[in-house]
Amino acid sequence: MSQFMTTFGIWLGAFFTISIFSFLYKDNPFYKLAEQIFVGLSAGYWFIYTIYSILIPNLFGKILSDFNSNIMLLIPALLGMMMLIRLIPKLEWISRYPIALVIGTSAGISMLRYTQSDVLSQVAATMINPLGMNTIGEKIGSFILIIGTVCVIMYFYFSRKQEGILGATSKFGIWFLMISFGASFGYTVMARISLLIGRLQFLLGDWLHIIKP
């Protein structure tokens, strides 16, 4: 019976794969069906994930195993329940307290962590001596790295009108941004194409057995 269910699973996968690809022709009931099932299953998956991976190990499991030591956890439990009260429009204001705690914590943590990891560390990594590099390629690259970083930061400086030296450097910064976006675009295309190849391998290999997996 397990063999039958495995085959049935492959047919299910093939049906949903073709249903989604049918959107390339035009919007149709098969695509709409697959889309809504995807939304439903995604929501269901994250619901279960939240319960089993966040709430049980961090809250319910601890409270049920040792209530006295974890009595403080009743506070976030209560705040979480207050968050759910947001669904009742008249009592919506109650949910501001857990939101305030979440926002206050994340604002405090973000300020420190981003300053450390994304400002100080990145600035320090840019303060290099290009002439101390081993090869000509590395020397040229390091000059490009320093100039590019400064020019792009100048482009993001919006407190003054971008003209004169500021305008010229920010224009140079746009060129660096374009190269970066192009490279990111190339990687995105490659990732999507590899997914497409995976889908075709599934359809032609696992399902139709035309190619060997």
Partner: peptide, 25 residues
């Protein structure tokens, strides 16, 4: 391309975004 010009732009985006996050916080 990945190690130098792209890295420079990504680094500048990170620094600028982080300054924006600090300001927003």
């Amino acid at each position: 391309v990945m190690n130098y010009p792209t890295n420079a732009a990504q680094r500048a985006i990170m620094i600028s975004a982080a300054l924006g996050i600090v300001g927003s916080s």
